[in-house]
Simulated scan of single mutants.
Amino acid sequence: MSELSHLRLMAAYNTWMNQKLYDAAATLPAHELAANRGAFFGSLLGTLNHLVAADTIWLRRFASHPARSGALEAAQALAPPSALNAIYSDDLAVLAEHRRMLDGLIGSLTAQLADADLEHVLHYASTKGIASQKRFGDLLLHLFNHQTHHRGQASTLLSQAGADLGVTDLLMLIENVGDPAAPAAPA
């Protein structure tokens, strides 16, 4: 599988898992979503807000990529978060809509990229103002790894609250090969 194909798979997995995460969270009452369970961002709602903040930061950085795809232009219009623990919304439905928009941008971005775009060195400053320059394909990989890390925390918080996230394996999105009679993985 090419690097670009792998990143597109990760974008699809990201969208699938975020939908599952928000669907499971929607089964909980508001006080359970906001309950401080000792996670790095306190609550499930805090963790979901952090993912929105971090993805917004990265998408805005990615907007400086010279490919200037439509997804990157749309990302540039996003308001920057005030901090990594910024609260976009205490209302799960509002936050879920924002999450779907971000996931759409990420999916569009990976769909529009060419292999050569992954080699571009992106210059950006961290939230603390530290200058960095890193290969764009590696930064996309970081974006997906960061999401997976915090979704793992969120799945634990859901479990603590009594909600079942269900199957979370990337394997569910990987196509079977070699046996044309084998069923396709569920989407």
Rank of each mutant, 00 (worst) to 15 (best):
M1R: 13
M1F: 14
L4Y: 12
S5E: 15
A11T: 10
N14H: 15
T15M: 05
W16I: 04
D23N: 14
D23Y: 02
A25C: 10
A25M: 12
A30N: 12
A30V: 11
A35R: 15
N36M: 09
R37I: 04
G42N: 13
S43M: 11
L44Q: 11
G46K: 10
T47E: 09
H50T: 04
L51V: 08
A53W: 04
I57D: 00
W58G: 07
A75C: 15
Q76V: 01
Q76P: 04
A79K: 11
A79Q: 14
P81N: 03
A83R: 10
N85G: 14
N85K: 09
Y88R: 10
S89V: 03
L92Y: 10
A93T: 15
L95F: 06
H98R: 14
L105T: 01
I106N: 04
I106Y: 05
A111W: 02
A114W: 01
A114Y: 03
D115A: 15
A116C: 02
A116N: 04
E119K: 03
L122R: 06
Y124G: 01
G129I: 06
K134C: 00
R135N: 12
D138H: 12
L140W: 05
H146V: 00
H146R: 03
Q147I: 04
T148D: 02
T148Q: 08
T156P: 01
S159M: 13
A161G: 09
D164P: 03
G166L: 10
V167F: 09
T168S: 15
D169F: 03
L170A: 13
L170K: 09
L171A: 14
V177F: 12
D179Y: 09
A182Y: 14
A187M: 13
